[in-house]
């Protein structure tokens, strides 16, 4: 089977200048329209000729979707704001350092210059069986090629697999969930604002989508409240190489302490399921407990309960356990002593 990987199939390109125009186009063309943000995920799909949209709506010319603004004691980040702008924004750096770290961990400087935060959040999974264009569950078929006895599935899910075992590749998603962010979604029928953790959906709920976006809808902004600004953050991304790579597993946490006691915490892990998982049970367990090795170890064990590794990804279980452990206890005291 010949594969053409350079020339994109023909499509009709629209470059609206306002969100309203973009929404009109998305409403008109529905599922036939492809939303184009930074283009980095899109170009893969289009050049590989796996996705063949008839209409492409390029959001690059919509000024109102760009920039970072103060709002209600927090921030509102336009979905078309580049990752570089997020990384270099002084308030983000000062108050939401975890988002800086997460955005800075994405890909390479060139990609961060072009890639947007909305695109990073909404990008499709990297499962190569799916991206090769085979008729898997996620592509509307009736099989998961990554979950068979012979599959090469080192990067795939250990939790919440439901027919499909793909994982979410976003770096900024766990950080934004930890920060209690909300996603502003607009469609022809109006605007809705949903918590970041509900923006991502697993295959049990919708096997062909990774987000709550429906055809005709657009992620326009991310609202980050001030609730967790300046708290104790932990972010770590484990990957095969240290630049330009997706996470094997990543962890994000925000914590408030009273002395050495954990007062409040939000803890999210990504790369282990089709959506970033907020570990609410672990959060509940560690609240009120001392921040120490014992609490962290118990939290790590609790986090991996129910994990079902595939043939080649059993390493993700101890990796996730240890990342959770490090997120709870921190690493400075233990690595410097």
């Amino acid at each position: 089977m010949a594969v053409i990987r350079d020339v994109m199939p023909a499509f009709e390109l629209f470059q609206p200048a306002s969100t309203a125009d973009a929404l009109n186009l998305l409403d008109r063309y529905g599922a036939d329209a492809w939303i184009f943000a930074g283009g980095l995920d899109s170009f893969d799909w289009l050049k590989d000729r796996i996705k063949r949209p008839r209409y492409v709506v390029d959001l690059g010319g919509i000024a109102e979707l760009k920039g970072i603004r103060a709002r209600d004691g927090g921030l509102e980040i336009g979905a078309m704001t580049t990752l570089t702008e997020v990384v270099s924004h002084p308030i983000v750096r000062d108050r939401y350092a975890i988002l800086t770290e997460a955005a800075e961990a994405a890909a390479s400087p060139q990609i961060r210059n072009q890639g947007t935060i909305g695109g990073n959040l909404s990008q499709d999974t990297r499962c190569w069986y799916y991206r090769a264009g085979w008729s898997c569950y996620r592509a509307g078929g009736n099989i998961c090629y990554a979950d068979t006895p012979e599959s090469i599935n080192r990067e795939h899910a250990i939790l919440e697999a439901d027919r499909c075992v793909a994982v979410n590749p976003s770096d900024t998603a766990p950080a934004l969930i930890v920060l209690g962010a909300s996603m502003v979604i607009r469609g022809s029928s109006g605007k809705r604002v949903i918590p970041a953790e509900n923006y991502f959906v697993g295959p049990g709920t919708d096997i062909t989508r990774m987000t709550a976006l429906q055809p005709g809808e657009l992620l326009t902004a991310i609202r980050v409240p001030g609730d967790w600004a300046g708290s104790n953050f932990y972010w770590e991304k484990v990957r095969d190489r240290q630049v330009w790579d997706f996470a094997l597993v990543s962890v994000a946490s925000a914590m408030t302490l009273s002395g050495t006691t954990i007062q409040n915490i939000r803890l999210v892990i990504n790369g282990v399921a089709a959506r970033p998982l907020r570990l609410a049970t672990v959060e509940q367990y560690v609240k009120g407990k001392p921040r120490n090795e014992s609490t962290a170890a118990a939290a790590g064990d609790m986090a991996v309960e129910g994990a079902q590794p595939l043939r080649f990804n059993a390493y993700k279980v101890p990796l996730m356990r240890n990342l959770v452990k490090r997120a709870i206890r921190g690493v400075e005291e233990w690595t410097t002593s």
Binding site: M1, G133, W134, S135, A139, G140, G141, N142, Y145
Partner: peptide, 16 residues
Amino acid sequence: LTWGHSPWGQQILTHV
């Protein structure tokens, strides 16, 4: 009926 492709490029039935 809906159709897909097997890894060998064969057209296969997937669903109604």
